[in-house]
Design a protein around this nucleic acid. Structure first.
Length: 863
RNA sequence: GCGAGAGUGGCGAAACUGGCAUACGCACUGGACUUAGGAUCCAGCUCCCCGUAAGGGAUUGGGGGUUCAAAUCCCCCCUCUCGCACCA
């Protein structure tokens, strides 16, 4: 063993040995309990960043720990390899996206290997490989046959910069989630997955995900957005059918005085034609169409609309209701038409006031009489129905039911449930994705590509076009094809590719049998490994990826391919890695090297303005506050980096980066190294303490600390995933060893206790800093890999204290403390407490009111 | 606006079921070893006040409550972060 800790040589040495012995490769073993640990796979963007390091360090601790607990652990890694950055880079650097992607994969794989993560690299996959995406195409065809996908011309979210359609989930506050450009609406034929068919089930199972953070479950529940209400039919005045309306407030239907339709509603122009309102309506609709949707739908935006020139009839009151089209009605929600009840809906109220429409109160709060003339806002709370014969006098909550019954009875409508969730639009007008396996034939129409013709290969000879327009559109060798049904040679291929979230919706199943050539996966392997026991990744995927994956799993179940509905039993969403930013008023965010003199007095190198520091933000290139893992690995080694990421904060919380903290982590590892190195000669050939009789005195204290540490670390890792406290527990043990007197440790009685303590430190740290632990383990003379050592256990006997420190409180304030034999009974403790000098002094001659004794902890004396 | 989470020393944080608040680390201060130290080791380190000292007082965003006992439970308020947001 070297005297100095030199991380690089230690780490590279063990990588080689682990690799040669194929220590991380696993197979199904029905005799062993499985544990599937999965971290969200990365997009191969170029280099591993600190967020990856944190994510995968957390995962690796759990994987290694579970393995030491005897589980058969599946811990795979792969690449979410399709996507737009590859294309954009390709355009910018004139390389093919495939080349760019595979190069990045090579770089990032070696970085992950350098960090010593225990992945079974034999299972590595990249979603851009035809042997991967062919099965996705296969499933698409199956779903097509079953009507689970459909094509529809739809108004879709369009990002001009990215030249593609975005799913609703990819629009954040009206901006593209990737480039933050304003999202426009565009009419295009699109492919959709019928995720809404599963809305109810996805929602219901939100209750059955106890291993998921509440936050994520709540977000999913809100996203699915179930509303229970009724659909009511409002007949058109001209007798030309009716307008269906969805409402959750059918109890207010007697107060519906007008109707509002979304500008996109197909009936709007139809109703307006020939009424004299046509021109005005057209102008309004067109203005809405081109208007930026965020603005139009933002909360503080003023409500506006126009009368379409037609009327419908309130089926309950028989009133004539003018029909308006207005900016606040949304085509995507409900039926795109709203019955407006101005007295009891704030939006309708504002609209009615603006356009002078009737306001009729139909719900009166108890002990109050609302008058439309004096109301300043809508009354939306509970009350009693009025002007609603035959429902007058009913509480409105009861009226909801009564009116729903009445609707169904009279066939004026029905009970209805509406979801906020939309079908998943998966068409992307980009090149670097899995082609949608569809052919369009003049005679046969839309024809799926037969199984035998799969995969539809993404052609590699495509030239990337400026502006990101898909080259597939004009690539004749791709587009021109023959119809699989009738053989007609004039057929053409679908040129859209699939949303990359489709690939990430089933990769975890593919890992179970990554080379499987006869289907999406080997069902037996999936039966053994799935579901994922622990999934770890960023909170940013709380809705998108996790909801899609839950949906996809249900589809697979309906095809009989899997037996479960929920793919991820437990979920851990780790926090972001953040760091202080430095900002110049002139030049914006600055790199640390562009700031003269760090800290409060920093100035900009360019313009010498004082630099604003202090805002801690998520590490990002644009904020110029990233820290490169590579540089740190080079300086301190992988173990230090891993240790810091785990020690600085509990996993679910954001981590504030601290260069000094990294230094501290390194210092600790050096101390551990030295500790073992210094005592190596003393414990060589000594067996770790396992005697029946416990050691005495100082040795007993150390021995107890060893067992306490095992208990704490085990609990922290296993039950709580609190690696930061696990590490501090080991630090305490190290401190205790160091503080123990040398002459005690080195007695013949002491050496085995010392050895046990040193080995315990080594083993407990091994999931966290595997290289260092492995090296120390070997130096201590243990031949086997630290990976396969069983996790240590503690004994209650060793934990037991001879004496217990009892705290004495007087009136709830700590006044004194004393030690007493651990087996002392309540009376003895009470007597000892009351006899304590300082207590006696405190109490003086005041009478005792009460004495509370908490066994093993404290005595509270109330006077 | 609705929903979720959080607020503890100079900083990251700990306190698991109500029972010694501030473990562990960072920064800082003093000392030792040293040609030197940015290496290492030892000691100190919540705040304020009174006191030479022993000791005492206050303190978990603010206010109130329950309790022998509250960072922890209940009520009101403030601040921050995240998600959704004209959802009929």
């Amino acid at each position: 063993m070297e005297k100095e800790y030199r991380p690089e040589s230690v780490e590279l040495k063990w990588h080689k040995i682990w690799d040669q012995n194929r220590l991380f490769q696993v197979e199904e073993d029905p005799g062993k309990e499985k544990y599937y640990l999965l971290e969200m796979f990365p997009y191969p963007s170029g280099n591993i960043h600190m967020g990856h390091v944190r994510n995968y360090a957390i995962g690796d601790v759990v994987a290694r720990y579970k393995r030491m607990r005897g589980f058969n652990v599946l811990h795979p890694m792969g690449w979410d390899a399709f996507g737009m950055p590859a294309e954009n880079a390709a355009i910018a650097h004139k390389v093919h996206p495939a080349e760019w992607t595979y190069q990045n994969i090579d770089t990032m794989r070696s970085q992950l290997k350098r960090l010593g993560f225990s992945y079974d690299w034999d299972r590595e996959l990249a979603t851009c490989a035809p042997e991967y995406y062919r099965w996705e195409q296969w499933l698409f065809v199956k779903m097509f046959e079953k009507g689970m996908v459909y094509r529809k011309k739809a108004s879709v979210n369009w990002c001009e910069t990215c030249q593609t359609v975005l799913a609703n989930e990819q629009v954040e506050a009206g901006l593209c989630w990737r480039c933050s450009e304003v999202v426009l609406q565009k009419e295009l034929p699109q492919w959709f997955f019928r995720i809404t068919d599963y809305a109810e089930d996805l929602l219901e199972y939100c209750e059955r995900l106890p291993g998921w953070p509440d936050k994520v479950v709540t977000m999913q529940r809100n996203w699915i957005g179930k509303s229970v209400g009724a659909e009511i039919h409002f007949p058109l005045e001209n007798g030309d059918g009716h307008i269906p309306v969805f409402t959750t407030r059918q109890d207010t239907v007697f107060g519906a005085t007008f109707m509002v339709m979304a500008p996109e509603h197909p009936l709007v122009m139809q109703l307006a034609s020939g009424t004299g309102q046509e021109e005005e309506v057209r102008a309004f609709v067109e203005r809405m169409w081109t208007q930026d949707k965020t603005k139009r739908t933002s909360d503080d935006y003023e409500k506006e609309g126009v009368f379409v020139g037609a009327y419908c009839i309130n089926p309950f009151t028989k009133w004539q209701m003018p029909i308006y089209t207005a900016n606040f009605a949304l085509m995507e929600y409900g039926t795109g038409a709203v019955m407006a009840v101005p007295a009891h809906d704030q939006r309708d109220f504002e609209f009615a006031r603006k356009y002078g429409l009737d306001i009729v109160v139909v719900i009166q709060p108890e002990g109050q009489t609302l008058e439309p003339e004096t109301m300043t806002e809508a009354y939306v709370d509970e009350g009693i129905l009025v002007r609603s014969e035959p429902f007058d006098g009913l509480e409105n909550l009861k009226a909801l039911e009564a009116i729903a019954d009445y609707l169904e009875e009279k066939q004026m409508g029905k009970r209805a449930v509406n979801f906020r969730l939309r079908d998943w639009g998966i068409s992307r007008q980009r090149y670097w994705g899995a082609p949608i396996p569809i052919v369009y034939c003049d005679k046969c129409g839309v024809v799926p590509v037969p199984e035998n013709d799969l995969p539809v290969l993404l052609p590699e000879d495509a030239e990337m076009l400026e502006g990101g327009k898909s080259p597939l559109l004009t690539l004749e060798s791709f587009v021109k094809t023959s119809c699989p049904k009738c053989g007609d040679t004039g057929a053409s291929r679908e040129t859209d590719t699939m949303d990359t979230f489709v690939e990430s919706s089933w990769y975890f199943e593919r890992y179970c049998s990554p080379g499987h050539g006869d289907g999406m996966f080997d069902q037996e392997a999936v039966g053994y490994w799935m579901p994922v026991d622990q999934y770890i990744g960023g909170i940013e995927h709380a809705i998108l990826h996790l909801l899609y994956s839950r949906y996809f799993t249900r589809v697979l179940k309906d095809f009989g391919l899997v037996t479960y509905k929920e793919p991820f039993t437990r979920l851990l969403t780790q926090g972001m890695v953040c760091k202080e930013t430095q900002k110049c008023p002139e030049h914006g965010f600055l790199y640390p090297e562009d700031v003269v003199e760090q800290g409060e007095n920093g100035t900009c190198r360019e313009c010498a303005s004082p630099v604003e520091v202090g805002r801690i933000e998520k590490m990002s290139k644009s904020k110029r506050n990233v820290v490169d893992p590579n540089a740190l690995i080079e300086q301190y080694g992988a173990d230090t980096l891993r240790l810091f990421c785990l020690f600085a904060a509990p996993p679910e919380r954001d981590l504030d980066w601290s260069d000094q903290g990294v230094e501290g982590a390194y210092r600790f590892l050096k101390r551990v190294w030295r500790l073992v190195e210094e005592h190596l000669a003393d414990v060589t050939g000594v067996r770790p303490f396992d005697g029946d009789a416990l050691p005495h005195g100082d040795l007993k204290t150390l021995h107890r600390k060893t067992h306490q540490t095992i208990k704490r670390v085990t609990n922290d890792i296993d039950a709580r995933f609190h690696f930061n406290t696990a590490i501090s527990a080991v630090m305490e043990l190290v401190n205790t060893i160091q503080a123990s007197k040398k002459e005690v440790l080195l007695s013949s009685e002491g050496a085995p206790v010392l050895r046990l303590a040193l080995e315990t430190v080594t083993i407990l740290l091994s999931p966290i800093v595997p290289h260092l632990s492995q090296e120390l383990w070997e130096a201590l003379g243990n031949p086997e890999s630290v990976l396969d050592v069983s996790w240590p256990t503690y004994s209650e006997e060793a934990l037991a204290e001879d004496e217990i420190l009892i705290v004495i409180q007087v009136n709830g304030k700590v006044r004194s403390r004393f030690s007493i034999a651990a087996d002392a009974d309540e009376e003895a403790i009470k007597a000892a407490a009351l006899a304590d000098d300082r207590v006696v002094e405190r109490i003086a001659d005041r009478p005792l009111r009460k004495v509370i004794v908490v066994q093993n902890k404290l005595v509270n004396i109330v006077v």
